[in-house]
Write a protein that binds this DNA or RNA. Structure first.
Lengths: 151, 151
DNA sequence: TGATCGGAGATCATTATAGTCTCCGACCAT
DNA sequence: ATGGTCGGAGACTATAATGATCTCCGATCA
């Protein structure tokens, strides 16, 4: 059903929270730790930890160890696209399996497959959609959406 | 990864095939049976059968029983949208679980959820994308098919 | 130096998916 | 009318993906 995973959900929530804390008036620049987010949004602590680790690995947030440690945005909210967030958690986003079959991958249907090309276009459109929306757009409550239906 | 299921893949292939047979020059109006499609595209017969049954149930194709039976498009190719095909197979397409929680459904994160609104907008955009592409659009430019005219 | 933080790996449970098997009823030709 | 060919439908199994948990480690700062 074109569903995104819970982990991706958690990633979005966490990033939104971090961005809000950092860019807000109250405590700008404050680091946010895993526990705080987990409690705020009822997310299993250790699962969220993994999500945040993945985000840190892909360079979207930076981690600070030790007491008073936690996470900070590594980029400005306007530079963090939804596409990048999702890819950090779920790997390259592909609508269909064959879209990323590079080397020895075999698709039983491939030889007579009649839907590969159109599906790749759909996938590309969705990717552009997610690339045109950033974390900043999610903060204001009026996200910017651009549909590019490449027929 | 926003992946669509294999069943949905099969549905698209099958519909594309049926549409091509029906609207093509060779054997216009010919009914297509499950076995023919399964063999052409290397799809497990019984799984494909279920897919086609679902498509028939949702009114995209009409079935004909008995010998010389099979399937026909119930609508013109231009009226069959990708969105409708996917929904026939996978149910209402929702990017996130909470998007369709209607009555008693509870989302642990819901009370403080900060991403619901923007996600719903993304979802809506994707839906529009898939609604603007029809089976007819998928017919252009793909190579195929040689069918043996059965006696 | 010890309590608090993130990093990383293994592990388990649950669910969704893919695929199979079996039986039924409709149809058409002979 | 009857048997072979078709779709309709349900139960069923296997496998993979996901969600979640547990444990141990290293970094850091008071």
């Amino acid at each position: 059903m074109l569903k995104i995973s819970k982990k991706a959900d958690y990633a979005l929530m966490a990033l939104q929270h971090i961005a809000q804390v950092q860019t807000g008036d109250v405590t700008p620049g404050r680091v946010v730790n895993t526990k705080e987010i987990a409690e705020e949004y009822n997310i299993p602590l250790e699962l969220l930890a993994k999500v945040l680790q993945a985000l840190a690995k892909s360079g979207l947030i930076e981690s600070h160890n030790g007491p008073k440690g936690g996470y900070l945005l590594a980029l400005s909210a306007g530079d963090i696209t939804i596409a990048r967030i999702l890819e950090s958690i779920e790997g390259p986003l592909s609508i269909t399996d064959c879209s990323h079959e590079q080397s020895g991958e075999t698709c039983m249907q491939r030889e007579h497959c009649n839907i590969r090309t159109p599906l790749l276009k759909v996938q590309d459109s969705i990717y552009q959609l997610l690339s045109n929306m950033t974390l900043r757009d999610m903060l204001g409550g009026t996200p910017l959406i651009t549909i590019q239906s490449s027929t």
